[in-house]
Computed example of a mutant assay.
Amino acid sequence: MMKELQQGAETNIPVVDLGEIGVGGPEDPSEEDWRSVGEKLVKAFSEIGFVYLSNHGVPSNMVDEVNTQSGKFFELDETTKLRYKRGKTEVQGYTTPGQERLITEGDVRELRESYDVQHMDGMFPDEEVSGLRPSVKVLIEACKKLASRLLTAIAIGLDLDRSFFVSTHNQMCSDNNSSCLRLLYYPSVPTNVCEGATRCGAHTDYGTITLLFQDNLGGLEVRDREGTWMNANPILDTVLVNVGDLLQYWTADKLRATEHRVLIPKEEMLKKIPRRSVVFFVHPDNPVLVKPIDGSTSYDPVTVKMHIDKRFEDTYQY
C-alpha cells in the first residue's frame, strides 16, 4: 500500500485583473495599462510563479465547447483512441494513462489521458468527433492572442523591450514551435486504486508560460518557496497562468517555474466524477537560443528544440 499524499493548504496565489490587456480589449492599450499589469505579473511570478487572471477575455463558452467535444473522444473505446496516439517528441495526438510519467521513481500510477494539438492540419479524430477540430481552432487563436499580450506585459514588467518575448514566439502552434493546446481528462478513480496514486505527478512545465482553464472540481496543488503544497482551486472566470522552465532560464531565476501536481481527491463522491481541463503550453520558436538576459552563467545556453525534446524523452514511456 502506498503512503497517502498529504493534501494542500489554502492558497495565496494572487489574482490580477488584466483590464484593457485582455483578449477583446483595444489593440493598443495605454503604456500605463501595460506597465501596471506587467509589474503585477512579474511580482507574482517572482514570488510564487503562478497567478490567476480575471478579465482575460477568452470566452468561457469556447472552453466549455472544447471540453464537450474532447469528452466525446475520451469516452471512445481504447482501440479507437489508440489510432490517434502521439509520439515521444511528435506533439500531436492522444496520450494513454501511464504513457507520460512525470514521477519516475517508485511504482506510482498517474491516472490521466490527454490529447495534444500542435497545429490545426495535424491528426484529429474527425471521423469520430467532427466537432473537435473547429472548437479547438477558435480556442487556440484566442489563447495565442492572450499569450502574446502576456508576453508583452512581462517584458515591460522586466524593463525589457516590449517585443523581447513576442519576437521569439512568432510561430506558435506550428511545425517550428511546440506550443500546443492540451485537452486533459482525469477519469473516475477505480475502486482498487490506493490513496498513493495520483492524477498528475509533481513537475514544472517546459516552456515560457502555461495557461490553464480548470473545471470546477479542482485538485491542482502548487508548491511554494518554503516547500508547502497549496491548493490552486478554480476561481470562476479566471485563467491560471504559471512560469515554465525556459522563462526561468531566461530570467536567471528571477521568475520561477514552480512545481505543481494534481492529486486524487479524498472525497468518494469526487473520485467518481471525471475531471477535465484545458491547457495551453506556450513555447518559443524551436531555433531560439535561450540564455540568461542578465549576462550571467546561471544556465548554459540551450535551443528551445533541444530543451523540449529532452524533457519529452525523459517523461514519455514506450
Rank of each mutant, 00 (worst) to 15 (best):
L181N: 00
P134G: 06
A147S: 10
L146W: 07
S163W: 06
E110D: 13
C194M: 09
S188Q: 08
G122P: 00
E113I: 15
P125R: 08
E128H: 01
E100K: 09
P97R: 09
A197N: 12
I140T: 05
M172I: 13
Q171F: 04
G106A: 11
S130K: 04
E90G: 07
L111W: 11
T168H: 04
E113K: 03
G157D: 01
P190E: 12
N192E: 15
Y206P: 04
V108C: 11
Y94P: 02
S163V: 14
G122M: 05
Q99A: 11
T191P: 10
G207E: 12
I103W: 03
P187N: 15
M172T: 08
E141Q: 13
E105Y: 09
L150T: 06
E100G: 10
Q171R: 06
G93E: 14
V91R: 00
T152L: 01
T95E: 15
A142I: 15
R182D: 06
T168Y: 05
Q92P: 01
A197G: 10
G207C: 12
L151H: 03
L183I: 15
K145T: 13
L132G: 01
C143N: 08
D126P: 04
E195W: 03
A202M: 10
D205N: 04
E127S: 08
T104E: 08
G106H: 07
P125D: 09
D205K: 00
A202C: 14
T95M: 14
V108F: 09
K137G: 08
H169F: 07
D126R: 08
D205P: 01
T104W: 07
D159H: 13
R149D: 06
S130I: 03
D116T: 02
R133G: 05
E110G: 04
L146I: 14
G201I: 07
L183N: 05
S178N: 13
G207A: 14
H203C: 11
G196Y: 02
S167I: 12
R149P: 01
N176M: 13
V108Q: 10
P190W: 09
C200G: 09
L132R: 02
T96H: 12
S188P: 03
D205R: 00
E110C: 05
N176V: 11
L150E: 10
Y115A: 10
L151A: 14
C180T: 06
L139S: 01
L160P: 01
D126W: 05
Q118D: 07
N192M: 09
Y115F: 15
A153P: 04
Y185H: 15
C180A: 13
Q171L: 09
S135Q: 02
Y115V: 12
N176E: 15
E110N: 09
V138H: 09
D107T: 15
Y94Q: 09
S148D: 14
D121G: 05
V138P: 04
S135N: 04
T168W: 05
G122H: 04
F124S: 00
A147D: 01
Q99M: 11
S130G: 03
S179N: 10
T104L: 13
T104A: 08
E113Q: 11
L111F: 03
D121V: 08
E113R: 03
G93Q: 09
